[in-house]
């Protein structure tokens, strides 16, 4: 156990000291074995028809969403119906949001299944669970944010920021697996020993985009819907 910790720390030190460390797949087999995590790409689920899925070039979004509803496993939430309630904006938001949008980079506290993740564009998030029904390359829209801010301004949600004010997208990069854990199960006065193996998978997301929508567009869309 201790030697493994030393080995890992040496390995980490090597990585940090040499910034041009080759990616894992270029390393010799032995070095790859030393890496604590491995990349697992799930085989795509059967029975899915690629042309019917909403690819980037698909112009009509509503039709494609209904068509993937039949094909993608129900465990992935699909696009909900647009919010009918008109956007009610506080005067302070209409005043300060352009200032927030004008500053260059933004951070956002997104909530996935009620758990907060403070991220900015380009971040990689390892979710603490395996998200069912997604494959690498899927783009998820994250629509629950508690905070949205820049260097000087923060828009706080109560409890969440209105999802029409911003656009946050994440790309599914794949899954990562933890090292195999083996737990010894032994009862007293009994020689039988059971070794329970655990190897959990975790979904990796990369935050592709954090954008604040322009107020004029929001108001124009609101007037059109009225």
């Amino acid at each position: 156990m201790f030697s493994r910790a030393i080995r890992r720390s040496v390995l980490d030190a090597k990585i940090t000291s040499t910034p041009t460390f080759p990616p894992t797949f270029l390393l010799p087999f032995g070095a790859r074995y030393l890496q604590t995590t491995t990349q697992h790409i799930d085989p795509p689920p059967q029975g899915l028809d690629a042309p019917k899925l909403p690819l980037k070039s698909t112009p009509e979004q509503t039709n494609s969403v209904t068509s993937i509803a039949n094909h993608v496993r129900r465990s992935v939430p699909l696009q909900p119906a647009p919010i009918a309630k008109p956007l009610a904006l506080d005067p302070s938001i209409t005043e300060m949001l352009p200032l927030l949008a004008a500053q260059p980079s933004h951070y956002i506290t997104i909530h996935i299944h009620g758990k907060p993740y403070l991220v900015t564009a380009g971040d990689t998030v390892r979710l603490p669970f395996h998200m069912p029904g997604v494959v690498p390359g899927d783009v998820l829209r994250l629509n629950r944010a508690a905070n949205l801010g820049s260097r000087d301004y923060t828009l706080k949600g109560a409890p969440y920021v209105d999802e029409r004010l911003f656009e946050c997208r994440a790309r599914v990069m794949g899954t990562e697996a933890e090292p195999l854990r083996i737990k010894e199960k032994k009862k007293r006065r009994n020689r039988r020993i059971n070794w329970v193996q655990t190897k959990l998978k975790f979904t990796i997301l990369k935050i592709a985009e954090v954008k604040i929508n322009r107020l004029e567009e929001l108001q124009r869309v609101g007037q059109e819907s009225l």
């Binding site: 795509p44 689920p45 899915l48 690629a50 899925l53 909403p54 690819l55 980037k56 993937i68 993608v72 992935v76 939430p77 699909l78 696009q79 909900p80 997104i110 909530h111 996935i112 299944h113 009620g114 997604v134 494959v135 690498p136 390359g137 899927d138 783009v139 998820l140 829209r141 994250l142 629509n143 629950r144 997208r169 994440a170 599914v172």
Partner: peptide, 14 residues
């Protein structure tokens, strides 16, 4: 149960 907070916007070809 809290809201999932995400939905599938663009699916990769599968």
């Amino acid at each position: 149960r809290p809201d999932p907070g995400f939905y599938l916007e663009t699916a990769a070809p599968r």
